[in-house]
Each structure stands twice: as structure tokens, then as C-alpha cells.
Write a protein that binds this DNA or RNA. Structure first.
Length: 564
RNA sequence: CGGGGCGUAGCGCAGCCUGGGAGCGCACCUGCCUUGGGAGCAGGGGGUCGGAGGUUCAAAUCCUCUCGCCCCGACCA
């Protein structure tokens, strides 16, 4: 491609709408433009990068024996009603009616459609296992889209579904996909980690997330450097590494704590560490029952654990007015003593002597509270998020924590969809059985954003070789040497994606643009070329500059590619 | 859904409080000049000031409504 002919509208300044690095750079590099909130156009350069990612995904999926299909984005309500998700899915499912007044939705995921596809035509165990996938547009009407294509409403996803005759088969398919994902993300040049994960709206019991490690990630991962254990903190058992000193129980004392509400404020007011404060949160179950959850002030409630404690029930925090009505005191002054609610106490309070609790009376707390003496919990369980200082549930080593961007998620679904949709096959023993399913997603457009979050510097994007829209950029700085640049461009284009900056621009502009869009190798013909006949090769990532004769380039690029 | 902010040229913004010429920088076009890190000079094109209604002799500016976008919150009391 010649830059003079290319539609690559780069921007000198950061657009005001962008907050995160990847969002700013995608806009500035002329790869995407917003059409509406959470809905983006992909310009040529952005699409090219996307295609590169798709290509890696497709190649590896095919290698694993999966077969590509394409399913519609518009889906009939009937299928969603079969699994009950028409009602269960909530507002993220964008629904509408056609001219005949029939209900449809835009597909946020395709379990129903694929299950329907397979149940119509797969009748025998002989056709199993079967793994089908597509790379397609999804629509989820996110509550708050943000960070550009990182959390968009319309986005590109690779979703795969496996069908097996039994659970062993599912294990095989699942492991196969796990390995395939490892090679996909490795080939994309990403630093990532696979973690045990929460299954959420898709369902099933086992799942793993693939997380690209980046400061700006929305998820937190806990992992063990020693044994390799890793999980999303939503799931990590909280095992305290702290040993509480045995300390005689002091008498309970009510203290006046005017205007201090948060645990930190209470701690500061009383001159105690935050860990000595407890906070009591009120949750509403199924819109009728209230429960109190009591944890240390320096800990956080893990609502996924709460959900598991009360399966099948909807859970939300109580509003301030509800708390006043139920407890008779304001948030910030709630405590377990004398509360006429079910009281869930976090395990970290077991054996913890002399802590502070709210008095259930505005402006007052109790100090020197002791569990068992001053209040009796209904349940003592692990209900908090794991945090630094906690121990690995597998080997007891202190855990490490890191932020990540979820780019892949694989699930063992079992019969969650096949059973309600009556997707059955005839097994060896002559019996009808439901398919044992798995599903496997990769956020293709999100990988593009995640790649940039992980690979950039102050000058712009630094694309990994495998997914760079252009791998090589050729620049000449004087018209006199245009011919030579042209020759190099022609030559290298036979094997690689090359862009020739033939614009009538000053050198600075060309260099800035090349850096901004993140082309891994820059071949520069300027002063030195005129003098010595050697071109300069700049490696974007390391900023190394090498000089060589034009006929050495091909060999150099091959080597560079092999190391990438 | 709650709170906050913002909509003025392609992008970034000023002007609004205190009503009366629609501006600045970048980008774009023409010419000269320049050519190793987003040059300089001169000239030029481009706007229903998000939309509707109202107040006024007069509205980007004041009032009402509306649409869109961004941020925070909706989970730590």
C-alpha cells in the first residue's frame, strides 16, 4: 500500500472522548471512529489489524478440528424462550419486533442458535464430537459502554461450541480448546494468564478466563508464583495468612463517634487500625428478606460468594432508606449486636479479639466487641475478596495479585442448553441423550484494544509482528531516492505487508505517523543512504537502528520474523 | 437508573457570567520556501453555535423542553 493512497486519518491530538491509552491511540492512528455510544466504524487500518487477529484465531481453531459456520445476528425470540433466557437475560438483550409483530433480538451470544442448528441435523453419537465456531458481530446493550472498543455494545467475537456424547468427551473438547487458546494468545504476541473463573450469565460449572495482563484491566487476578494456581478474585478463596494473637476479652464499651461513617473514618477517629473496625452490610434477598454481612474494615465483600451462599436468589445491597427502616440506624453505624436479621460473618473474624462494631444507633459504635460473647452469628463463612496477605488455596504460599483484561472465556456447559431445547442424539446403547456441551469465546475486537494497552509507548502503538496491520514501513526522505525506495517496497511486498510512505510530507510527519500506527519495522532511506547506499532499519519496539545494504533486507526481515 | 460535565469548522478549544461583529490553534486548498522527528511566510475554503420553543428591537450568550456524548456511582456504609 502507498500511504498517499491510503485512508489513514491520523490525529495529532487526543480526542476529548477517549480516556484510556488504547482508545486514544486507536482513534489517533486512524483505526476506528465512533458512530454512536459503544458502536464503532473500523477504518482500513483497524480492519486490517482485526483481520490479522481473526486469521490467527481461525488458523488455530481449524488446526484443532473445529469447523467454521456463520450464524445470524438477528434471532427469533422463540429460541430464547425455550431456554428461559428471553426473560432471564435482562436489558443487555436488545429486543425488537419485525413488521409482522414477531419478537426478535440481536444476538449477544449464540448458544440457542447453535443448539438449534445441531439438534436439527445431528442424530447419532457417530457424528460426535463436533466443534463449530464462528467469527461474527455480537450485540450487547451494555449498561455503560466504555474505553472505546474495549467494552463496546457491538463487537467482534469468536464463539465456539462443542458437542459431545458424554462428560469425558466434554473434558477432552474443553482441554483441546484450552490448549488452542494458549496458542492463539501466544501467537498474538500477548502476555496473558489463564485463571479459574465465575460462569455468570452463560452458566455451567467449570470455566477459565484468559486474561491479558495490563494495569487498566477491569478484573483482578490472584495467582501463586510457586504452584501456578490462578483465579479471578471473584472466585479466589480468601485464606488469611494472619495469626491473631490471643488477647484477653475486654469489656464491651459504647463510644460516641459523631459523623464518622466509613471504616477508615472510624479507625482514624478511634486511633485504631482499619483492620480492627468491622463493617456490617445489609443485603436484600429476592426483594423480601434482609441479611446482614459482617466483615473486617480492610476487607471487601465478594458478591459472587454471597450469590453462592444464597443460590437461586437475587441479591442486592439495601438502599439507605431501607437500612434505616430495617435497622433503625444509618449506614455506617450498623453492627451485628442485637440485629434481628440473619447474620453472615466472614471467617476472618473467627478468633479475632476486641474489634469495633456499629451500635445500630446513629453516632455510636461499640469497641472491644467479641464474636460469641456480644453477638451470635448465624453463619461464619468465607464471604470476602481475597487480598494481599492471603494464602494460596493449593499450596499455602502468599498470593500475588495483578490486573487483567478478559479476552477469552471457556465454559463447560453440560446440558444447560441441550436439555431444555431437547437437543438429543441416539447413543451406542440405543438411548436418546442430550448433548454434553461446552462453549468458548474470544473477544476479537477486544484483543485489538488489549494489545495496545499492553504494547505502546509515548509515541504510539507498538504492534506485535503477527497482528500488525503493516509489518514494514518504507520511508524515503528525498525525492531523488524514490526509485530505490520503490524497489525495496516492491521486493518486500512479495512476502510481507508493506506500506510505502510516498507522501509529500516533511520527515518529521512521516516518522511520527509511522511510530503512531505501530509498524514494527521501519526502513528509512535518507542522508546515510545517499552517502553509503545503506538503508537504516528502525525496530519500533526497541528503537534499535541497524544499517544494511538493500539486498540484505529480506534476510534480515526473515530473521526478525522468526524471532517474533 | 442516580450524580456531575460537555455539545461552537474535520480535531482540540475560547467566546456565554455582563445579549448587538462567530473566533483561535491544528488539519484542509493555492503559492513561495523548507526537507532526519508533527517547519515558516502569504493568501484562501469550510459553521442551521446539537435540536425545538420562548423572552427581546436583537440570542452561541437569558428561560423552558428535548436529543446526543463523556465521566463517576449503582459494592464496602
Amino acid at each position: 500500500m502507498r500511504w498517499s493512497k491510503a485512508f489513514i486519518p491520523t490525529l495529532r491530538e487526543d480526542p476529548a472522548e477517549a480516556e484510556t491509552i488504547s482508545h486514544k491511540l486507536l482513534l489517533r492512528a486512524g483505526m476506528i471512529r465512533k458512530l454512536a455510544s459503544g458502536i464503532y466504524n473500523f477504518l482500513p487500518l483497524g480492519l486490517k489489524a482485526l483481520r490479522k487477529i481473526e486469521n490467527v484465531v481461525r488458523t488455530e481453531m481449524n488446526k484443532a478440528g473445529a469447523q467454521e459456520v456463520l450464524m445470524p445476528i438477528v434471532q427469533p425470540a422463540e429460541l430464547w424462550q425455550e431456554t428461559g433466557r428471553w426473560d432471564a437475560y435482562g436489558k443487555e438483550l436488545l429486543r425488537f419486533k419485525d413488521r409482522k409483530d414477531h419478537d426478535f433480538c440481536l444476538g449477544p451470544t449464540h448458544e440457542e442458535v447453535i443448539t438449534d442448528m445441531v439438534r436439527r441435523d445431528v442424530k447419532s453419537y457417530k457424528d460426535l464430537p463436533l466443534i463449530l465456531y464462528q467469527i461474527a458481530t455480537k450485540f450487547r446493550d451494555e449498561i455503560r459502554p466504555r474505553f472505546g472498543i474495549m467494552r463496546a455494545r457491538e463487537f467482534i467475537m469468536k464463539d465456539a461450541y462443542s458437542f459431545d456424547a458424554d462428560w469425558e468427551g466434554l473434558d477432552n473438547s474443553y482441554n483441546l480448546m484450552y490448549e488452542t487458546y494458549v496458542s492463539i494468545f501466544t501467537k498474538c504476541g500477548l502476555r496473558f494468564k489463564a485463571v479459574e473463573a465465575h460462569t455468570g450469565a452463560i452458566g455451567g460449572d467449570v470455566s477459565h478466563e484468559f486474561m491479558v495482563l495490563a494495569e487498566t484491566g477491569e478484573d483482578v487476578l490472584a495467582f501463586c508464583e510457586k504452584c501456578g494456581y490462578a483465579s479471578n478474585v471473584e472466585l479466589t478463596p480468601a485464606i488469611s495468612g494472619e495469626k491473631y494473637p490471643s488477647e484477653p476479652e475486654k469489656p464491651l464499651e459504647k463510644v460516641y463517634t459523631p459523623g464518622v461513617k466509613t471504616a477508615q473514618e472510624v479507625a482514624d477517629f478511634l486511633g485504631l487500625p482499619v483492620s480492627k473496625i468491622t463493617k456490617t452490610l445489609i443485603y436484600i434477598l429476592d426483594e423480601k428478606e434482609a441479611v446482614a454481612v459482617c466483615i473486617r474494615g480492610d476487607h471487601e465483600v465478594n458478591e459472587v460468594k454471597l450469590e453462592k451462599l444464597f443460590p437461586e436468589k437475587s441479591i442486592r445491597m439495601a438502599r439507605e432508606d431501607e437500612i434505616k427502616r430495617i435497622v433503625g440506624a444509618s449506614p455506617g453505624f450498623i453492627g451485628p449486636k442485637g440485629l434481628k436479621l440473619k447474620i453472615v460473618v466472614d471467617k476472618a473474624l473467627e478468633g479475632y479479639p476486641n474489634f469495633v462494631i456499629g451500635a445500630n444507633e446513629d453516632e455510636y459504635h461499640y469497641i472491644n466487641a467479641n464474636m460469641g460473647r456480644d453477638f451470635i452469628p448465624d453463619i461464619v463463612v468465607d464471604i470476602r475478596k481475597a487480598c494481599p496477605g492471603d494464602l494460596c488455596p493449593k499450596c499455602g504460599t502468599p498470593l500475588s495479585f495483578i490486573r487483567g483484561i478478559e479476552v477469552g472465556h471457556i465454559f463447560k456447559l453440560g446440558t444447560k442448553y441441550s436439555l431444555p431445547m431437547k437437543a438429543m442424539f441416539l447413543d451406542k446403547d440405543g438411548k436418546m441423550k442430550p448433548f454434553i456441551m461446552g462453549c468458548y469465546g474470544i473477544g476479537v475486537s477486544r484483543i485489538l484494544a488489549a494489545t495496545i494497552e499492553q504494547n505502546h509507548d509515548e509515541n504510539g502503538i507498538i504492534f506485535p509482528w503477527q497482528i500488525a496491520p503493516y509489518q514494514i514501513g518504507v520511508v524515503y526522505l528525498k525525492d531523488k531516492i524514490k526509485e530505490e525506495a520503490e524497489k525495496i517496497y516492491q521486493q518486500l511486498s512479495k512476502n510481507w505487508d508493506v506500506i510505502l510512505d510516498d507522501r509529500d510530507e516533511r520527515p518529521g510527519v512521516k516518522f511520527k505517523d509511522l511510530d503512531l500506527v505501530g509498524i514494527p519495522l521501519q526502513i528509512i532511506l535518507g542522508k546515510t543512504f545517499e552517502k553509503t547506499g545503506e538503508v537504516e532499519v528502525k525496530i519500533r519496539k526497541t528503537e534499535e537502528r541497524k544499517h544494511m545494504k538493500p539486498d540484505e533486507l529480506e534476510e534480515f526481515v526473515k530473521e526478525f520474523e522468526n524471532k517474533a
